[in-house]
Simulated scan of single mutants.
Amino acid sequence: MNRRVDGHALGRFDDGAGPFTGLVVGDRVLRLQDDGLVKGPAGYLALLEEWPTVAPRLRELAQEVTPADSVPLADLRVLAPVEPRQVFQAGANYRSHVAQIIVSGRAPDDDRSEDELRRHAEAVMDETARSGSPFVFVSLPTAICGPDDDVVLPRDAVQVDWEAELGVVIGRRAHKVTRAQAMDHVAGFTVCNDISARDLQFPPQHKALGGDWLRAKSRPTFLPTGPFLVPADQVGDHRQLRITLDLGGERRQDDVPANMLFDVPALIASVSAAAVLLPGDLLLTGSPAGNGGHWKRWLQPGDVMDTAIEGLGAQRNRCVAEEG
């Protein structure tokens, strides 16, 4: 996949000799040196721990990158740009998605028309946004894979789904921050695809206890991320970034974050009220309508997903069957 960035971004790469962190400018990558921007190795967490001072220095470096001190992006393997200690995920956070859930989940004896159901869904969402709180769960960082890596479909699941999402990277410790303070704690944004085994998510034996988020969402390769961490100062209005997902060349999801029920500041305020967000943590903000349940289509070996967010880049992941 041919990639380039407008402005600059942070990424993780492998040149055949091992992983390293680099600054992407256009279609070239500058390897960040140890004892440069931070004391010691220029690893992901070290940079994010010092993000308030690192971010302006990255802007300065980006102005100085030349072909002599950088390498072509096309010559490198692109890894997931983040190595978070914690991953938080918002669920049912797009108006289009919630409307689909309500309409498709009607009871057999519900004789309302689709228009009536949609009006009901709009009223439910308006009230939720006005007086409710976001639904957020925690998943494992070990689910993360790179933007070009294969997604492994487990043997014990047959309804594996996709969810294109805007990922928010935390750049400053956040605990009990207000909505007004929230964006000051954002380092930048990235592209995520929250793969989910729907037939494992709500097993009958655990129905009284809720969803099985571990088996359904935290499997290795179930969170393709990247290609880059684009700093917040390199992104215009993140609410207008177009999110798309194509499966086998067919458009399945298409929306913008402006249609979230709870926006990024609200999510950060809500999560930080209950937990401590650490520099480098990843917050997924929910997925638009157009998941597999709507299309009556689940991921199969050989499927190719193209997930993109305007201004942040694109990923392409092939689905493969679990071996053994």
Results as ranks from 00 to 15, higher is better:
M1F: 06
G43R: 05
F20R: 15
P81N: 09
C145K: 12
L10S: 02
D281W: 01
R173Y: 04
D110M: 09
F137R: 15
F228Y: 14
L209A: 13
D69E: 14
G11N: 06
E116L: 00
Q181V: 08
M260V: 09
D75V: 05
F202C: 01
G286R: 12
G105T: 12
P56Y: 04
E50M: 13
V304G: 00
L283P: 00
G236T: 09
T307C: 12
R31W: 00
W298D: 03
R95A: 10
G280E: 08
Q205D: 03
F222Q: 03
W295A: 15
F137S: 13
V24L: 03
V78S: 02
D126Q: 08
V82M: 07
S272Y: 06
R3V: 10
L37R: 07
Q234Y: 00
I195V: 15
P204Y: 12
E165R: 08
G171C: 12
R77M: 10
R31C: 06
G293T: 02
P19M: 10
A180K: 14
D184Y: 00
G280L: 02
G313T: 10
W213G: 07
R173G: 01
A80I: 05
P204V: 14
P72D: 04
L278H: 13
L166T: 11
Y94A: 05
T142I: 09
L32A: 10
H175F: 01
D69N: 15
D34E: 07
V160L: 07
T221A: 06
A157K: 01
D27A: 10
S96W: 00
A197I: 11
F222M: 11
G226S: 01
E116W: 01
L30H: 05
L200V: 06
D6Y: 03
G146M: 09
V65T: 04
Q201N: 07
L214D: 09
D255Q: 02
T285N: 01
L241C: 03
Q300I: 08
L117C: 10
S270N: 14
G324P: 13
L278V: 09
A99Y: 02
N93M: 08
M260G: 12
G248W: 06
L32V: 10
R316W: 02
L284H: 02
S96A: 14
P108G: 06
L79G: 04
R57V: 05
V78Y: 01
V78Q: 04
A274T: 11
W298P: 12
T225G: 04
V151N: 03
N2Q: 10
G188V: 05
W162M: 09
E165N: 09
V271S: 03
A275K: 14
K176D: 11
L284G: 00
E60I: 14
V191A: 01
A90K: 06
S131Y: 10
L23H: 04
E50I: 06
Q89N: 14
V87F: 03
T53Y: 09
F137Y: 13
G302A: 06
L200M: 05
I309Y: 00
A90W: 13
A99S: 15
S113M: 04
Y94Q: 13
C192A: 11
P41Y: 01
S113C: 11
R28M: 08
D69F: 02
Q240R: 15
G286P: 00
E322D: 04
V177H: 01
E163T: 10
V65C: 05
